[in-house]
Design a protein around this nucleic acid. Structure first.
Lengths: 113, 113
DNA sequence: TTGACGTATGCTGATATCGGAATATAATAG
DNA sequence: CTATTATATTCCGATATCAGCATACGTCAA
């Protein structure tokens, strides 16, 4: 087996920087593929492929508008990611955590001398 | 070019389900590799490899303890992911969004008849 | 129908991935 | 030193990925 298919879940879909850029851009509204590609400096086929992945995990919608196909955001799928990472919030908020880091580092340094 | 290296950033590191399981487990405290592997039903080399990736992106620390190596969480790297997804919060919270979905679906269905 | 425009798909090549098995390294005990 | 335990690394095979290019498909206008 290789890595899980990128189309299978949202975590994989947003692992790609260009796809994250697309999602950010779509917060501004609907975009036809060509304009989106120009804006983000990707090729049109490249944009189409990324949009396909995003569509398959449900992060974008598309609707036909003449020759164009307008893509828009459906960010509800990002909620689970937000919540999952939120489950770690207390670990980065608590101040003794940073102190603990410091202590750990000292211990480690001493051991490795 | 292929996909960005999984070691290069946190988004890629957490795209792997087993690595997410490891992070969740480590919220309970420090774990030696073998026990962690047993708990999550992975092989020891498998666990070591995932832990290496997590270490390289800074999501876990390790310290030596006799023959064992204890891994612990450093979840601060998850904060950017939490914040990035949080930038989409208003899009999934606003109720007109769901209404808009409904309208979009109707339009689409009508066009595709 | 033909042409032009917008978009999607197919193919190829280079590379990264993940799992498994074997083996190497590290640290302790006897 | 040797054996044992704990962990890391390496090699392998199968597969998924991403970019680039060519091309197919879809839609509209003349």
């Amino acid at each position: 087996m290789a890595r899980a298919a990128t189309t299978s879940d949202v975590f994989n879909a947003i692992a790609e920087p260009q796809r994250r850029e697309i999602l950010v851009l779509l917060r501004a509204g609907e975009w036809p593929v060509t304009e989106l590609a120009q804006e983000l400096r990707m090729t049109q086929p490249g944009a189409s492929k990324h949009l396909r992945v995003l569509r398959e995990v449900g992060l974008v919608r598309d609707r036909k508008a003449g020759k164009q196909r307008l893509y828009s955001l459906d960010s509800r799928g990002l909620r689970p990611v937000h919540e999952w990472t939120g489950g770690f919030e207390r670990f980065w908020n608590e101040s003794f955590d940073r102190l603990d880091d410091y202590v750990q580092d000292l211990k480690q340094a001493r051991q490795e001398e």
